[in-house]
Write a protein that binds this DNA or RNA. Structure first.
Lengths: 225, 225
DNA sequence: GCGACTTTGTGCATCGGTTCACAAAGGGAT
DNA sequence: ATCCCTTTGTGAACCGATGCACAAAGTCGC
């Protein structure tokens, strides 16, 4: 009783969602090299995952493969893009134009498909008014107005830790529900708001942990207790 | 028959390892504010996790709490730091000094404790020889020599996608087993090498997915098939 | 010194995610 | 038209992580 070739399941597992962009990237590469169809085995290889997992992931979107053949690259690109919401474009605001914010603004790669940096905002009068990556840096006092005027729906927080929660509260107050946080703080947000965090320091610490393990475990402390 | 107050379990769950830096950050904040002891409830709150989870995480390191009281902040900071390997300092090399690499080099915050940027490497003759964040940028041809000479054990890849795998192979060849990858590619590495990846584009795509859901699900395509 | 109170550490049930392994489905050759 | 080969889609077992709920352990006041 299931209609075939239709996205049916509204509830896609979070782990699957996190991998879809990976598949999409691999597929884009294949499309560029003129590959028309791909098997789950090959695509999984390119994305660095297990083929069974890939098939199960894709099965959550619908039945888009052909048994005995594989998946049509272009079609799959479209389906995944649509599922991820990349067929529309998203206006992103970057708040905090320090080292990192500036790098993000200039880093063309990450706004490749579907995303557009629509505003830069900072508190430092020294940088407000500057043009970075073709955009005028606006003052933090105008935060709400800028968000609304530019139709921003995703905010990237690249402020100092101390300012992040405040900015976060303000953008949520004007309806933003998606935040990418680079500040090293745990943001507290109401239900319905998604926060993803990127913390370089944490990543390094995790690496250090494993590195230490490989080097022979935590040093046995000489002190008895 | 278990010795109390000793780190006993050599196998700490990966999920726990990923949260330890979070606890550590919260604890540092508390130490600075002069808080001497903290309950699992409070610490969990500050780290944004459930208190049962926090207690179970800490229990993997040993029995460092006092029932009826809580955890001693300074002591716990030390134990977690030691477990994560932050009592020694780690020399980090940043390969690729473009927008992002430069921002990372200048971003003092993330090298706060235990980490030290020991080398910057790039392929562009234009930037080789420049001084960034007090460090001389060295040429990619000298990559291996620099890694060895400076005792680098963690490499941060901030190169263009096309160059990442090559650099990765080379640093692994001279013994590096911990890599933090910012390039949007899936690195293939031998067993025993840890790679963690940070991909801004992927994070945005995940946010877009949820944002679209909130806005009423993927648009029902008008075309029948 | 004792009892009430607080908070840890953990056994257990549960859940989401991964992996295996195979039946079902399609394509292509003869 | 039929058979064989390839590859998908998925049922089911497994595995790690989560969260509840409580006994054990310790503190503090009297």
């Amino acid at each position: 009783m299931k209609s075939p070739s239709q996205p049916r399941d509204r509830g896609i597992p979070e782990a699957t969602v996190a991998r879809l962009p990976l598949y999409l990237r691999a597929l884009h590469g294949m499309a560029e090299r003129g590959i028309a169809t791909v098997s789950s085995e090959d695509l999984a290889g390119a994305a660095g995952v297990n083929s069974a997992k890939l098939r199960k992931d894709l099965s959550h979107l619908g039945s888009y493969g052909t048994r005995g053949v594989g998946y049509e690259v272009e079609y799959l690109v479209y389906q995944i893009s649509r599922e991820l919401g990349l067929t529309q474009d998203w206006a992103v605001a970057i708040v905090g134009v320090g080292n990192l914010g500036r790098a993000l603004a200039n880093y063309g790669g990450f706004v490749s498909r579907g995303f557009r940096v629509a505003a830069l905002v900072d508190a430092d009068p020294e940088v407000v008014g500057d043009t970075i990556a073709g955009l005028n840096v606006e003052h933090i006092d105008d935060l709400e107005a800028v968000i609304v005027r530019r139709g921003v729906s995703i905010v990237v927080l690249a402020t100092p830790a101390a300012a992040a929660q405040k900015v976060c509260d303000r953008v949520i107050a004007v309806g933003v529900t998606s935040i990418l946080n680079f500040a090293p703080v745990v943001l507290s947000v109401p239900d319905g708001v998604d926060v993803r965090k990127v913390d370089l320091s944490i990543e390094l610490q995790i690496l250090a942990f494993h590195e230490q393990r490989k080097a022979g475990g935590p040093l046995m402390a000489v002190d008895g207790q």
